[in-house]
């Protein structure tokens, strides 16, 4: 039972890592039905930005709390600027064109960003310092969960609640939902869809940057390629939970984390990916729109 609990908690921690990235994926998809393959790269760039600014602040001898706050803020701003720009130059000109064009453009952006960081920074793995505080009271339970995992879990929960609130109860959220339902109609009733979509990308990228800082702190390392691997898993999680649904992305991530963790614990880690994809296939067979996804009827 104790073993099960440990595995369950490590699955939860793993799930919250996936969820941090999946949230941004699903939000962009929910509004403009684009699978933004560059999302993983924004997450990686967020991590790198925090590493660079964090290192700079540390070298100036600033306190840890200050370093954490400002490097996260700067990496959010930086990543958001990236998201905004990418949307403007790589996706906006393709709006209204077949959906496949934007998808291919997204894959292209992903490659460009990876190689950009490879050339501009390094191909090596770099050490990522832990900016996050360690809770003394958690020490006795360190076999179950550690401070960084708990912070990631907490941040995921807070982000999920805030995003749901934003989309359900604010003016911008209303405009987002309108854009998601029918872009042309929304435009006709006076919604500035360019602005709405830009905001969506800025928000999604900001989330990726937060994810980048937290997850890199947990891994203790960073490399230009981390976004690709994390992006694939987060994408699976988002589809599993019902792509486009905010709570769905979180639930899907947890299901994925639990499956992988329990599969590893009770069977073998050799088949970790196999378990992840088996559960994806099973759920898509039973409920093709994902666990919390809404069925979209094709309009004739």
């Amino acid at each position: 039972m104790e073993y099960f609990l440990k595995l369950f908690l490590s699955g939860t921690a793993k799930g919250s890592i996936y969820a941090l990235i999946a949230l941004g994926y699903t939000m962009v998809y929910g509004i403009i039905q684009l699978i933004n393959f560059a999302h993983g790269e924004i997450y990686m760039i967020g991590g790198f930005t925090a590493l660079i600014f964090g290192g700079f602040f540390f070298s100036k001898g600033m306190p840890v709390g200050f370093v954490l706050l400002f490097s996260v803020l700067l990496s959010i701003i930086y990543a958001a600027a990236f998201g905004y720009t990418i949307e403007k130059i790589a996706y906006r000109p393709l709006r209204g064109k077949p959906r496949l064009s934007a998808l291919i453009s997204a894959i292209g952006v992903s490659m460009v960003l990876q190689n950009f960081v490879l050339l501009a920074q390094t191909e090596k793995f770099l050490s990522f310092p832990s900016y996050l505080p360690e809770f003394k009271w958690l020490q006795p339970y360190k076999e179950y969960i550690n401070s960084t995992q708990l912070i990631i879990l907490g941040v995921t929960a807070v982000i999920m609640v805030l995003l749901t609130f934003l989309i359900k109860f604010t003016r911008m959220g209303k405009a987002m939902r309108a854009t998601a339902q029918d872009m042309h109609m929304a435009q006709l009733v006076g919604v500035d869809i360019n602005q709405v979509i830009s905001v969506t990308f800025i928000l999604g990228s900001a989330l990726a940057a937060i994810g980048g800082v937290l997850i890199c702190s947990y891994m203790g390392q960073i490399n230009y390629y981390i976004g690709f691997i994390a992006g694939i898993k987060a994408f699976v999680a988002a589809v599993l939970g019902g792509i486009g649904s905010i709570p769905g992305a979180v639930l899907g991530s947890f299901v994925l984390g639990w499956t992988e963790s329990l599969g590893t614990g009770y069977i073998s880690s050799d088949y970790e990916d196999a378990f992840a994809f088996i559960i994806l296939i099973v759920i898509l067979l039973i409920k093709p729109e994902g666990i919390l996804g809404r069925t979209q009827r094709q309009k004739v």
Binding site: S10, M219, A230, G265, S269
Partner: peptide, 20 residues
Amino acid sequence: FEGINPGAPDYSAVINKISN
């Protein structure tokens, strides 16, 4: 005797298994 996925962010499950 197990293989793990290179590049994965988290290995806590297999570490729990080792400790168990």
